[in-house]
Amino acid sequence: MHLKVGNKFGDRLILAAVIALAIAWIAPLVWVFALSFKPDEFLAQRTDVMLSPPFTLKNYLNILGTSQVFGWTINSLIVACTQTLATLLLASLAGYGFARTEFRGKNVLFFIVLAGLAVPEQAIIVPLHAMFADLQMHNTYSALVLPRLALPFGVFLMTQYFKAIPKDIEEAAMLDNASRLKIFFRVILPLSIPAQATLGIFTFLNAWNDYLWPLVSASNPEMYTLTLGLASTQTNFAQSEGLGFLMAQAVFASLPVFIVYLFFQKYIVAAVSGKTVR
């Protein structure tokens, strides 16, 4: 569309509108970022001055002086990464099985898995909590990750994707008498990287932002993920006394994912801009 010459004015107008919206979009973050450099005592009285002094690095130094945020971040990273990798593996295997192989009862099973799309985590949170309690498994990484691996959406996505890969490709590999598993890992999996990226990002963000299940499962503060940890310092008491520190924590906590995101974003754009087998 951008190739068109006649509509330059319209294009610019749209761009201007989007830029204006984008500025509004990041305003709250800029605001918080600026406030994180203000002394607590100052913020307790006013929050409407961003660019003029006083400034301080104390809030950030305080973070470096305490280990809590690091612990939460590590918990979050472990949970989110494990969950993402495990989901990709399980969903790819299953997706491949459904899309490209034949076996008895496949269609019924696929339907059953798809039906799981409709089951919200909240519908099963009470029994799930009871089950993990019976096994005395709460406050472990497994408890945080395992329930999230039953993600029918992932299987659905991968199945759709594998179906679209031309059959010839793997049939060629079959000629070499390669086993199905080998074909899957050597041929199919590399071809599905764009879909893996999509599902991976989706899973990672969901894991990262997960709140309800960790809230009831990771009840021991040592097992807090970043999300829970930030909630725990967000008590009203902390807010009135340590706003600046809290803001700095928020900024600090966002940094790793923002960095990861910037890497992945390039990757996503490349992946979705037509360089796929489709």
């Binding site: 709250p28 932002n209 829970l228 928020a250």
Partner: peptide, 13 residues
Amino acid sequence: VLSVTIVTLVWKL
């Protein structure tokens, strides 16, 4: 990529 607690904190402010 922000977690819900950061989002609510920012917006509460």
